[in-house]
Computed example of a mutant assay.
Amino acid sequence: MRVVIVGAGAVGRSVARELLENGHEVLLIDKSPHAVSVRRVPEAEWLLADACEITTLDEAALERCQVVIAASGDDKVNLVVSLLAKTEFGVPRVVARVNHPKNEWLFNESWGVDVAVSTPRLMSALVEEAVSVGDLVRLLRFSHGEASLVELTMPEEATLVGTRVGDVAWPPNTALVTIIRGSRVLIPDPDHVLSGGDELLFVAAPEREPQLQELLSPRTNGSGSR
């Protein structure tokens, strides 16, 4: 997979290294000569240029990319790059970094953003996830804001403890994607039995989150099983 990363700061370089280790082809773009340091990520391609210019994106051959990551420290740059990548070059997947939470509402389909990653929100969510049992925690918004990755740690006293996954009537537009049980990561199977302390990860439509919360909380009356 060919990936273009705009912004060669600490975030962009770290993402580039991870992708390269996984066998992907990476091009880093930055307009600052100080940021373009080939020796730090020698396996990547580098381009010293302004990614907000169409000519730069032409030179980067964005039409051949599967993913563009707008990872600069400037939200305006990330939005412009996302919009150009999606509308001018038809890039299938655009991931954008949100630097300031007040700007998060802009990072959506209208600006060409498929996945918005807000570091402050993610850090807050991870703190909540670490200390919350029985509360639904939103970890990530994606797919133009129409679905989110959410997590809930099953309380020991939840009614669904001891229930088979296949016997639960999950709300519409939700999918249980992973069960983390201690050091094990389980792909959900209808015969898996839910246990107290299980960390459940769902992809869910935002309007279904309250139903998930109610279904999995200690207050549930068991009506979600059949």
Rank of each mutant, 00 (worst) to 15 (best):
M1I: 03
R2V: 02
V3N: 05
I5R: 02
G9H: 01
V11H: 09
S14Q: 14
S14W: 05
S14A: 15
R17Q: 13
N22G: 15
G23F: 06
H24V: 07
I29Y: 01
D30I: 02
K31H: 15
V36N: 13
S37M: 14
A44D: 00
E45L: 14
C52V: 15
I54Q: 08
T56P: 10
T56D: 13
C65E: 03
V68N: 04
A71E: 06
G73V: 00
L79H: 09
L79Q: 10
V80N: 00
V81Y: 01
V81G: 01
S82L: 07
K86I: 09
E88C: 10
G90H: 06
G90N: 10
P92F: 09
V94E: 07
F107C: 06
S110I: 12
V113T: 01
D114N: 13
V117W: 01
T119H: 10
R121Q: 12
L122V: 13
L126G: 04
V133S: 14
G134F: 04
D135Y: 12
R138G: 08
R141K: 13
R141F: 02
S143L: 08
H144K: 07
H144R: 11
E146V: 08
S148M: 14
T153R: 13
A158R: 01
T159R: 14
T159H: 12
V161D: 09
V165H: 00
V165K: 03
A169I: 07
A169V: 09
T174M: 00
V177Q: 08
I179S: 08
I180G: 05
G182N: 05
L186W: 10
L186G: 09
L186S: 11
D189V: 11
D189T: 15
D191A: 14
H192N: 15
L194W: 06
S195G: 06
G197P: 13
G197E: 05
D198K: 06
E199C: 14
A204T: 00
P206V: 09
E207L: 05
P210F: 13
Q213H: 12
L215E: 10
P218H: 03
P218W: 05
N221F: 04
G224D: 08
R226Q: 14
